[in-house]
Simulated assay, not measured.
Amino acid sequence: MNLALWVAASLLATVLLISTSKMFVPRERIAAVGHAGAWVMDFSPAALRGIAVLELLAAAGLILPAVLGIAPVLVPVTAACVALLFVGATGMRLRRGERATIVPDLLYLAVAVFVAWGRFGPEPF
């Protein structure tokens, strides 16, 4: 179980790190990639940078506290916050009518809930 939680947290941290590219790539370029990236045009560049900073902090919060042994309780707290982030992402996709692109958000939401449940419950640090 511990290994599965580490893999899930690492996968989630990787996804969040990749997603921080919106901090560096112009939103017009992200929107041009395809239908899945069109949502960025609904947000200002400052809001996108804010979301990217939160994702960067979440990626760090999923891994670093446990690795460094400093306040490891932050891992499940961060996972719960990431779950809320993906609830918001799912809501945004539903509002925009992007039902085809909602599946990855729901998958990441499930992974975040799994990490939060596992680290709060059966496999705490």
Rank of each mutant, 00 (worst) to 15 (best):
A46S: 05
A60N: 06
R27K: 14
E28P: 02
A100F: 12
A52I: 10
W117E: 07
R49W: 09
A66R: 08
V77H: 02
E28H: 10
W117Y: 15
T101F: 05
A83K: 02
R93M: 14
L64W: 12
L107R: 09
L85F: 04
R95M: 12
A79L: 05
R93I: 02
P76F: 08
A83G: 06
V82R: 00
L106I: 14
L94Q: 11
A58G: 13
A31W: 08
W117L: 09
V111A: 10
A71L: 09
D105Y: 09
A112C: 11
Y108L: 14
D42M: 06
G69L: 05
G91D: 02
V53K: 05
L64Q: 00
V111P: 03
A80G: 12
T101R: 12
G37F: 00
E28C: 04
L107W: 04
V82A: 04
R96V: 08
L109K: 15
R93L: 15
H35P: 00
P104R: 09
H35W: 03
V77E: 00
W117R: 07
P45I: 11
L74C: 11
V73I: 09
A32P: 06
F43P: 01
F43Y: 13
R99C: 08
T90E: 04
R99D: 11
R27Y: 04
L109R: 14
G61I: 05
M92T: 10
L62Q: 05
I102M: 12
G118C: 12
T78H: 05
R99V: 13
L54G: 15
L68C: 11
A116T: 10
M92K: 08
L68Q: 02
G50Y: 02
R96D: 06
A112Q: 05
A66C: 09
P124W: 09
V115D: 08
L107S: 05
A71F: 10
R96T: 03
M23Y: 15
P124Q: 11
E55L: 12
L57S: 08
F24A: 11
G118M: 13
R93H: 15
A58R: 08
A110E: 01
G37E: 04
I30T: 07
L106V: 15
G121Q: 03
G118D: 15
R95P: 01
L109P: 11
E55D: 01
E28S: 10
L56S: 10
L85W: 03
V103M: 12
G37P: 00
A36H: 10
I63Y: 00
V25S: 03
L64P: 00
